[in-house]
Simulated scan of single mutants.
Amino acid sequence: MREEKLRVLSGRTVLLFPDSDAYAEWKQRAESMYFCKVVVSDIIERNATPKQKEAHIDIADWIIFQIREGKVMSTANHLVEAERILQRMIEKNPVLQKLIDDLDLVLVGASPIGNDDEKPP
């Protein structure tokens, strides 16, 4: 978190995920970064077990633990559903695949537009 290396992020919002033993330090250092907006996540601080904190886990360790415990299945299922929706769209209009390929588009997710109580936009 050296300012000279982070200066390229000027004007951007930066989300930091400190290791379990570094939240307070990163939060303090983030307050002095005036060239960009810095948000320091406390997800590990709030959710890591004492044993995980003792092991100085980082965000990757915490995510792996969540996957092993089956706590992020809804995210995985959401992406699988998005792939199914996209495949059905391509089956209805094969030119869509050419557009995806030509523009190097990447599937990032899918969500419904509105709900049953609202009129579509």
Rank of each mutant, 00 (worst) to 15 (best):
M1I: 12
R7Y: 02
R7I: 03
L9K: 01
T13D: 02
T13H: 08
V14N: 04
L15S: 05
F17E: 09
D19P: 02
D19F: 14
D21H: 14
A22G: 09
A22M: 06
Y23S: 04
Y23Q: 06
Y23T: 14
A24N: 05
W26G: 06
Q28T: 15
R29S: 14
R29W: 12
R29D: 09
S32G: 13
Y34S: 12
Y34T: 14
F35P: 03
C36M: 13
V38I: 13
V38G: 02
V39I: 15
V40I: 07
S41R: 07
S41Y: 12
D42N: 14
I43V: 15
I44A: 03
E45D: 12
E45G: 13
A48T: 13
A48M: 10
K51G: 07
K51W: 06
K53P: 01
K53A: 11
K53N: 07
E54Q: 15
A55G: 05
D58L: 03
D58G: 12
A60C: 10
I64F: 04
F65E: 13
Q66L: 15
Q66T: 04
Q66D: 08
I67P: 00
G70N: 07
G70P: 09
G70F: 12
G70D: 10
K71F: 05
S74H: 04
S74F: 08
S74L: 10
A76C: 03
A76E: 01
H78V: 00
L79I: 10
A82E: 01
E83S: 12
L86R: 10
L86D: 03
Q87R: 11
R88Q: 09
E91H: 06
N93W: 06
Q97L: 10
K98I: 00
L99W: 08
I100P: 02
I100K: 03
L103Q: 14
D104C: 12
V108S: 11
V108H: 07
S111Q: 04
S111C: 06
G114S: 03
D116V: 13
D117F: 10
D117A: 08
E118V: 11
E118A: 07
E118T: 13
E118S: 08
P121F: 12
